[in-house]
Design a protein around this nucleic acid. Structure first.
Length: 804
RNA sequence: GCUCGGGUGGUGUAAUGGUAGCCACAAGGGACUUAAAAUCCCUCGCCGAAAGGCAUGCGGGUUCGAGUCCCGCCCCGAGCACCA
């Protein structure tokens, strides 16, 4: 038989598969559907490195197995091509983003093509295609019509380098997640999506996702950050003003000894005139304003603030007068931007109280002296009048009841999640389909006029003024009001990159007409959705995955989709690091290009290697030496072809191993434990290599098990066996539990917990026989030294443990 | 600081509470070869001649039996970070 030439084999089968259209997907009623999806890439100018395809290989393997198991499999691919990276690349390389994107898409597509994926390219999507973003705009309009998109002028995160506003989710430790620049707070006109309206649903939905990794659900629920507590009204002395605070510990209200408000809190400005230490406060405000968020957090160890002298808050329970401080350790963006300070039972309040010599009261029973350190756990109430002796949980409830009855406060659920800053002051994004009319205010572009196309401009660099480059195109900006026909202006901000990725998984399942126009066909969408398996990087835990769930839940609420959660099962892919253990980057000059690996070792070897490296969800360093190992494995399988004989029959032991391997590989692929699946196939092929001859049937089983991993080579060998249909049209091997049974097993014999002997025995040995054999073993006799064992434990099929 | 992960040979890793190191890589030895590559065979946690002893980050505990479970530390990685 000829040598394994991966180039020839891979070229041949790619061509054949394309010709036969084996990967074209249709909605079929006869088979169960299986929708397996990768997080689509943004096509950067650098092309693919070997890390990109890892997840795609995994979904391809699962998809191929499901196909052979009789499922109607959808496994599509597309491009997340809007957004800052594409635009920055375009600016840097002095080409129009549309052109750069088209080129990069072509490169990515060519590179992915080398790896032999089952993509149905008829379903390819591109977020920058007007036919695609027509629907991105349509969804945005539905949000707008339901009041979930609103205009805001509040200060937002501004990246001075990217020259655009950013959402909370786009920050990394006070820096721009994209470019690392320090973020400024800048008041700006923004479109904001009311994701907070969905906080409860997004949180509750997590409980209905048993097939998501726990840590991702945890990250999302931490990001949403629900806490239960109370709003409490404090009257300001000699004034009509009310200071409203939020607390999760209403049970400690008797322990409040001072109040703190954020520098931005209106109470400060309202009282600035009348306080005695006006200059001191003004200085503090100036200083707080000049500090960036980053500096604020870096300085967090030293809490400082300044008293609003002569402003006193009244504790609504006992009328005691409390001093009011301004301090930036209280955030204006959370709760009411004001707190009651209970230094006896809160770490931060305690620190602040120590520094400014404020009284510290104990209102929860504890062993330590609260003047020495705060007691922040639960206990039972003390020094708290009607709460005394109540455990914290009950005290909270009772206090809230009391406040509500007296009209002094109410129960309140608070979230850390903020509304989603949705506008970007950049060119390369979906235009927002909104028009501002002096008479009618903001008016939606009529749906029959969608898509609102991104106008072609020469100068697409950011203006730096806080306005999108679109603002300079006056004949585009100036338009007529769709309602009254009067003069009006278009919104010039664009949508963030996340917009297009919020619903792309639906687009893959929408039918297109001859021109490529999508139809929101609910039957087809509901046939495929929800996604059965979604694979991608953990970095999307609190960004894409929260945004997409938000949009999906909204679409469900307006009846556009039929299911509440878009992704039934989520699997994280672990990063592939460079050989030096660092992240692959041009900067370190350690990027491995998949094209070269495919050229030298073949796509099948590369696919196999990436799955063999280690546990799928764990990061792992690339090793070209490791590719050699799996390549040798493929060659050994190839060589087995010479041992095929019509008359061959494997012995029972090897047959048992074959069936154990069927079970192992099937279960491992399902659970995405590809490394151990490959290991067991290697063991099987090593054993097959030792026998004289193998039957066609037994070899076919190995080929089928291996086919999802190494589709080209196995298809070739399958074809050599005389099969005319594709191996992927054949049925997945069936595991036979009877045949998988071993005839002989090895029992371990332990004396006092230490291994002293092993016995090879018949698999159906009973307990008595096994114990007898163990005790009469020569080696064991030596250890017993004639003593009577105290106890003999038998673990079926595993071991005998003798205790002296 | 808080919350998750993780720590096993020279390396990547494998082990429903049941023979620790499967499968590979690297290394060493051998066969084939004029030679090399490729391929095939053997060795390969540490100490020890062997018997055996010691070994899964460290220290305790539960158990006939712990890499796995419990308690307390140390180190590495990720996420969050003054959220009241």
């Amino acid at each position: 038989m000829k040598q394994y030439n991966h180039k020839e084999v891979e070229k041949k089968w790619k061509k054949t598969w394309e010709k036969t259209g084996i990967y074209k997907t249709k909605e079929e009623s006869g088979k169960p559907k299986y929708y397996v999806l990768d997080m689509f890439p943004y096509p950067s100018g650098a092309g693919l490195h070997v890390g990109h395809p890892k997840g795609y290989i995994a979904t391809d393997i699962v998809g191929r197995m499901k196909m052979m198991q009789g499922y109607n499999v959808l496994h599509p691919m597309g491009w997340d091509a809007f957004g800052l990276p594409a635009e920055n690349y375009a600016i840097k390389n002095k080409v129009h983003p549309a052109q750069a994107t088209a080129e990069n898409v072509a490169t990515f597509k060519k590179q992915l093509g080398l790896l032999g994926f089952t993509y149905d390219w008829d379903r390819e999507v591109n977020t920058t295609d007007p036919k695609y973003y027509k629907w991105t705009q349509w969804i945005f309009l539905q949000l707008f019509k339901k009041g979930l998109a609103y205009e805001s002028f509040a200060p937002i995160n501004w990246c001075p380098s990217c020259q655009t506003g950013l959402a909370n989710e786009d920050l990394d430790n006070g820096r721009c997640e994209r470019c690392g620049s320090e973020i400024e707070r800048k008041p700006m006109r923004q479109w904001v999506l009311k994701i907070t309206d969905y906080a409860e649903k997004l949180l509750d939905g997590l409980d209905k996702l048993p097939l998501w990794p726990e840590h991702i659900k945890k990250m999302q629920s931490d990001w949403i950050g629900r806490s239960e507590g109370a709003l409490v009204d404090f009257k300001i002395k000699d004034s009509e003003e009310i200071l409203k605070i939020f607390t999760t510990r209403p049970d400690t209200l008797f322990g409040a000894t001072y109040m703190v408000v954020a520098p931005e809190h209106p109470l400060v400005a309202q009282n600035l005139e009348k306080i005695s230490n006006q200059k001191e406060v003004q200085d503090y405000l100036d200083q707080a304003k000049s500090k960036s968020d980053l500096e604020r957090t870096e300085l967090q160890k030293e809490k400082n603030g300044v008293e609003l002298k002569s402003v006193k808050a009244i504790n609504p329970l006992n009328g005691s007068e409390l001093p009011v401080f301004v301090a930036d350790y209280v955030l204006y963006g959370y709760g009411t931007g004001a707190i009651m300070a209970v230094p006896g039972h809160d770490e931060r309040d305690w620190e602040f109280a120590k520094k400014y010599n404020l009284p510290i009261l104990a209102v929860v029973s504890c062993d330590n002296d609260v003047n020495e350190k705060p007691f922040t756990s639960e206990g039972s109430a003390v020094n708290s009048d009607f709460l005394n002796n109540l455990p914290t949980k009950e005290a909270k409830i009772k206090m809230i009841e009391y406040l509500e009855a007296k009209g002094l406060g109410e129960k309140k659920v608070q979230y850390k999640l903020r509304d989603w800053v949705f506008s970007r002051q950049r060119y390369w994004g979906e235009p927002m389909p909104l028009i501002h009319c002096e008479k009618d205010g903001w008016v939606a572009v009529p749906e029959d006029q969608l898509p609102l196309e991104l106008p072609k401009v020469k100068n697409y660099e950011p203006s730096g003024t806080g306005e999108s480059p679109l603002a300079t195109i006056t004949d585009w900006v100036n338009t007529a009001c769709p309602q009254c026909g009067g003069p009006a202006k278009r919104e010039t901000n664009t949508m963030p990159q996340w917009a297009g990725s919020c619903w792309y998984y639906l687009a893959y399942t929408m039918p297109k007409d001859a021109e490529g126009n999508y139809d929101w066909d609910k039957n087809k969408i509901n046939y495929w959705n929800p996604i059965d398996l979604y694979v991608g990087g953990a970095e999307h835990a609190t960004r894409h995955l929260i945004y997409a769930r938000f949009w999906h839940k909204f679409l469900f609420d307006i009846g556009a989709v039929a299911n509440e959660e878009p992704f039934t099962r989520l699997q994280n892919v672990g990063l592939i690091l460079a050989e030096d253990g660092r992240k692959m980057s041009k900067r370190w000059n350690n990027v491995i290009n998949p094209d070269e690996v495919v050229e030298e070792y073949g796509a099948d070897a590369m696919r196999l290697y990436e799955m063999f490296m280690g546990p799928f969800d764990q990061p792992c360093a690339w090793s070209t030496k490791g590719v050699v190992g799996v390549r040798r494995f493929l060659e050994r399988v190839w060589a087995l072809n010479e041992k095929i004989s019509e008359t061959a029959a494997m012995d029972k032991k090897l047959t048992a191993q074959l069936h154990q391997t069927i079970k192992k590989v099937s279960e491992d692929i399902e659970a995405m434990r590809f490394n151990t699946a490959i290991s067991s196939m290697m063991q099987l092929s090593n054993e097959m290599g030792k026998v004289e001859a193998i039957s066609k049937e037994d070899f076919s089983v190995l080929l089928k098990l291996l086919s999802p991993f190494a589709p080209h080579m196995t298809e070739e060998l399958w074809n050599e066996l005389g099969n005319s249909e594709s191996i992927f049209e054949s049925a997945w091997p069936k595991y036979d539990a009877e045949l998988a049974k071993d005839e002989e097993i090895t029992l371990a014999v332990q004396v006092n917990g230490k291994l002293r002997d092993t016995l090879v025995v018949s698999a159906d040995i009973n307990e008595e026989e096994a114990k007898k054999m163990a005790l009469s073993s020569e080696k064991i006799q030596k250890w017993l030294e004639g003593a009577q064992p105290k106890k003999v434990i038998y673990v079926k099929g595993k071991l005998i443990s003798i205790v002296l």
